[in-house]
């Protein structure tokens, strides 16, 4: 803790707190929108904010992030505009994807967010290709792919780790292990009880980190990103985390996990931890943190209003963007 306090710039610490809170408030609002029937339920990232926040703190706009079905937190941490995100959730023309992608496909190439992806494990090879592009072009940008413990059983991860390792690509494979693939427990589905250990088989470092602790994630990610930028190849990071809600909007997790278990993780909440850390280390006052939270709430309300006020796509959009050029 002492090392962290001294090594992380204050601006970065505050950016991370702002990001954690903004994600939390955005996701709460997305849930309200779903509850009111304006949108279908989304895959809530509440509880999992710290992993992309600690990692994206090291990234530039020209670094790539690829997500999965639960990706609002990846997008926000990578700097995607929340007005456009909320408009996308509402299927509006002003959305990140012009209303054509929705919650599972949010993308903003200008921010290096090359897309959430609805197929589990599908984006892992794509991220590997982004890293290949960086290497072939002699650039120092890196590629990060987020996936869950469920995707760790997909062949796409294993094929990609092998490729990234033999080609020494600048990619971070980041497993957000939230302990459940839909309702299937990690302990049941992952042989050896560790995703990180699988890195050894592909000749790359594999690190397990407390995914509720943004400082720890930041430290681990910093090393991995720097390795990648130096051309020293890929890293597998397994961040142990937890989703507070069900797998998707209508899923009641009480069918497969206890209230006690959930409380255990909620007590280790990433925002509570960071608040305590910032106050105890004298980086911010409680009042300042409350201001940040209020600010996040206001931004989310503004984003929601922007989305509601925005027009739906023109019917002609149905047939545009299928191809760039079609005779």
């Amino acid at each position: 803790m002492t090392k962290s306090q001294s090594s992380i710039p204050k601006d970065t610490l505050m950016w991370m707190y702002e990001t954690l809170v903004l994600i939390r408030r955005f996701e709460e609002q997305a849930k309200r929108e779903a509850d009111q029937g304006r949108i279908l339920g989304t895959h809530s990232a509440i509880g999992e904010e710290a992993t992309p926040t600690g990692i994206c703190a090291h990234l530039r706009d020209d670094d790539y992030v690829l997500g999965n079905h639960r990706s609002h937190h990846h997008c926000i941490a990578k700097g995607v505009d929340i007005n456009e995100m909320m408009a996308e959730l509402l299927g509006k023309a002003t959305g990140t994807n012009k209303g054509k992608g929705g919650t599972m496909h949010i993308a903003d190439a200008t921010k290096g967010m090359l897309g959430a992806n609805g197929v589990v494990g599908s984006n892992i090879p794509v991220a590997t290709g982004c890293a290949l592009s960086a290497k072939v072009q002699g650039k120092d940008n890196v590629s990060v792919v987020f996936f869950g413990d469920g995707a760790s059983s997909q062949g796409s991860l294993h094929e990609s780790m092998n490729l990234a390792s033999i080609w020494n690509l600048p990619v971070l494979f980041v497993c957000e292990n939230n302990r459940y693939a839909e309702s299937t427990p990690f302990e049941y589905a992952v042989a050896g009880q560790s995703v990180a250990n699988r890195a050894a088989g592909y000749g790359m470092p594999g690190v397990t980190v407390d995914g509720q602790n943004v400082i720890e994630v930041y430290e681990v990610a910093g090393e991995a990103v720097e390795r990648a930028r130096r051309g020293e190849g890929p890293t597998l990071i397994e961040a142990m985390t937890y989703r507070y809600h069900g797998h998707f909007g209508a899923d009641n997790p009480r069918g497969y996990r206890t209230a006690e278990e959930q409380k255990y993780y909620e007590d280790k909440d990433c925002i509570l931890y960071m608040e305590q850390f910032l106050i105890e280390s004298g980086v911010a006052t409680k009042e300042r943190l409350e201001e940040i939270d209020n600010d996040a709430k206001a931004k989310v309300i503004k984003a929601t209003q922007f989305a509601i006020d925005s027009p739906y796509p023109d019917p002609s959009e149905l047939l545009s963007d299928v191809y760039i050029k079609y005779p």
């Binding site: 790539y64 090879p125 794509v126 991220a127 592009s133 960086a134 590629s143 062949g155 490729l163």
Partner: peptide, 14 residues
Amino acid sequence: TGFVGAGVGAAAAG
């Protein structure tokens, strides 16, 4: 899956 997907990513990235 790995290299066709990597082709897709490489194309998306320039």
